[in-house]
Amino acid sequence: MGRFDAVTDRQLAGLKTVLFLLALVPAGRLAWGAWQGTLGANPIEAVTRGLGDWTLNFVVLTLCVTPLRKATGWVWLTRLRRMLGLFAFFHATLHVTSYVWFDQFFDWGEIARDILKRPFITAGFAAFAIMALLAATSSNAMVRRLGGRRWRDLHRSIYALALIGVVHYAWMVKKDITLPAAYGAAIAFLLGLRAWWRWQERQRQLAGAYLKKPKGKVIPIAIKR
């Protein structure tokens, strides 16, 4: 058994605190930079884009949790996933606020027209709406209310919102799509892994792997009914 295979609740709480504080650093740096005037000539654009970048970063981090868990066997990683997802939503909310406030100054008519007319804003808004739904159903109480299976199916829409988020980015840039392409590749890889696991699982089922007798010594365990 590896050293980090199991963590106590207390260690996990400590880890969560550290993660929470770390996750506040990017927004804190942007706020500080805006305050100090070190974000260049167009600080509002720098803030809005920085928040957009960090939304995507946290979406990618959230999607990394399961692959990392499978690779390391550290099951407790899953218990950090909700916080990462909520931090994606946190940055997305500030990103949208910056647009609504500084770009449109609460002109809801203009915002509605933007959402309908401009594909990159349509995509961004769609991704944000899905993310808001996931954030709203992120609590333990909501897991119980929806039931594990339905909750899991609903929260798999992070796959869609991640892709829509990258499309939003790619449609926004003027010409150079290097960065959106990099995010796209990372997300495609992370989603591809999941497709691969599913395929493998399916192959195992088709081969009847579960019906075969396992090799080696079988340790009987008692199951209470």
Binding site: L24, A31, W35, T38, T93, L94, W101
Partner: peptide, 19 residues
Amino acid sequence: LSIGAGLVAAAGQPLLPAR
């Protein structure tokens, strides 16, 4: 409160370039 403070900080920025 933190979000609010962040937004206020962003909104009240002095725009003094130190570049």
